[in-house]
Computed example of a mutant assay.
Amino acid sequence: MKMTVRGILTALATAFAVYLAARSLVWAGGVVDHPMLAVAVTGVYLVVVILSLYVEGRPVAAHDGESDGMLTAGRRGPTRMPAWVCIVVLLASAVIPNTAAAALALESRATSFGTWYVGAIGLLMMVTMVRRRPWVAWAGIVILAVSTIAWLGLLPALTLGLIGSSMWVLAAQLLLMSMDRAALDAARLSELQRAASAWRAAQQGRQRERRIQVQRALAVAGPILSRAIEQVGLLDERERTEARIAEGQLRDELRGARLLDDGVRAELDAARRRGATVSVLDEGGLEGLSDAELQRIRAELAAAVHDAVSQRLYIRSSTHPEIAVTVVGRSAAGTLPDEDSVDLWREIARPARG
């Protein structure tokens, strides 16, 4: 049979409650004025203990990263004690000590069976504390202390179990606090591990993407670089043009790889060969798109570059919710070299999401 924390705690509490109840009925060497009342009080105590241990309540609400799977709450531990059971427990903490003491003769009230209720109510309050009702548990201890001192006196009450019962409740509260802190630390550690794994996966993806970009860049610029080294930089006009185009292609691969496919690359190459200056920059906004959506955007981009006659083309991705890519073309408009005008403005819409 699978053992759980809840099952172990419940079994221990039940066994201890039965022991205390049995001790209350062992009247050796003592005088009991009202035996039926004493037996009835013991029976009432056992009923209250059963209610406190076995009546289900609502799970403890998660907060600050805690979950319902803590060692002391939810399926793996006691649920929060229902409010009506708390009321019964408080009534028991007031009725049982007074009734148990009233059932005994004066000389029997300080005996082992005459003070059974001190440990019994302490156990009941400890169960209440474990079931996430700390204020009820401490209120019960206060009620027990008042009743015990009233019947036995201050010093006898302290020496006959009142301090021990209070220590049980305090130990239960400290144990719960340490368990909750450990559960919270474990949850945070798990979250950090998931974040670290996601970061590592993202870094590995970026590394693979960089390797692909470097390989593509070397394939584009490698031949002209080798030629430049062989000629010690003395290139003819055709080779200079090829070097300028290779430089542009290399910039495209490094700065806007997400915007590129074979069709876009071919149109950018054609624009540069006719003398246009082309700038491509991925500024984000395309990360959440599928391959099919990116393919459609790249097809529209290739068509826009193919139709362009501008001397300078600026292609940028966009984070705008409705615009994916913007293509701007500028050409000379006057006699001054730096005087130009916008002759192309094309916005490629972001795919609509249903």
Rank of each mutant, 00 (worst) to 15 (best):
I143S: 01
L155N: 10
W138R: 00
T148L: 00
R131L: 11
Q173V: 04
V146D: 05
W138E: 05
L154G: 01
L170G: 10
L160S: 01
A145H: 13
I163Q: 04
T148E: 09
R133I: 12
A171T: 14
W168F: 15
M125D: 08
I143D: 01
L155P: 00
L144T: 02
A157T: 09
L170H: 07
L144V: 10
I149G: 03
P156G: 12
M167Y: 13
L154V: 14
S147G: 07
L154K: 03
V146K: 06
L144A: 00
L170E: 08
M167D: 13
G161E: 06
A139R: 10
G153P: 08
A157G: 13
P134R: 06
R131S: 12
L170S: 10
M125V: 04
W168D: 06
W151V: 02
V142D: 09
W168N: 12
V169I: 10
L158P: 11
G140D: 06
G161Y: 09
G122W: 10
A137H: 08
G164M: 13
I143G: 04
M125G: 01
M125C: 14
R131V: 08
L158H: 03
G140C: 10
A172K: 13
M129G: 08
L155R: 15
S147W: 02
A120N: 12
L152P: 04
S147I: 03
I141Q: 14
T128S: 13
Q173F: 13
G122Q: 03
G140H: 03
R133N: 03
V146L: 14
A139V: 10
V127W: 03
I141K: 02
R133P: 04
L162R: 09
V127R: 01
S166C: 14
P156R: 08
V142E: 03
R133A: 09
L162Q: 02
V136K: 03
G122A: 13
L162G: 02
P134K: 15
I121T: 11
M126T: 15
L158S: 11
L152F: 00
G164R: 13
A120P: 06
G140W: 01
A150W: 13
G161R: 06
L124Y: 07
I149E: 03
S166K: 04
M126H: 01
V146Y: 10
V146I: 15
M167E: 14
W168R: 14
L124K: 08
A139F: 15
I143W: 00
V130Y: 08
P156N: 08
G122H: 06
M129S: 01
A157L: 06
V146G: 00
W168I: 01
R132Q: 14
P134D: 12
A137L: 08
V146S: 06
A120G: 14
R131W: 11
A171C: 15
W151Q: 13
R131T: 10
A157S: 14
L155D: 10
A171H: 10
A137V: 09
G164N: 06
S147Q: 11
L144W: 05
L155A: 11
T128Y: 03
W135D: 07
V169P: 02
W138L: 15
A171R: 09
V130H: 02
M167F: 12
V127M: 12
L123E: 14
M126Y: 03
M125L: 06
L162N: 02
L160N: 12
S166H: 01
G122D: 08
L154E: 04
M167P: 02
V130M: 15
T128L: 11
L123I: 12
G161L: 02
A150V: 05
R132C: 12
Q173Y: 14
R131D: 10
A150T: 11
I121R: 02
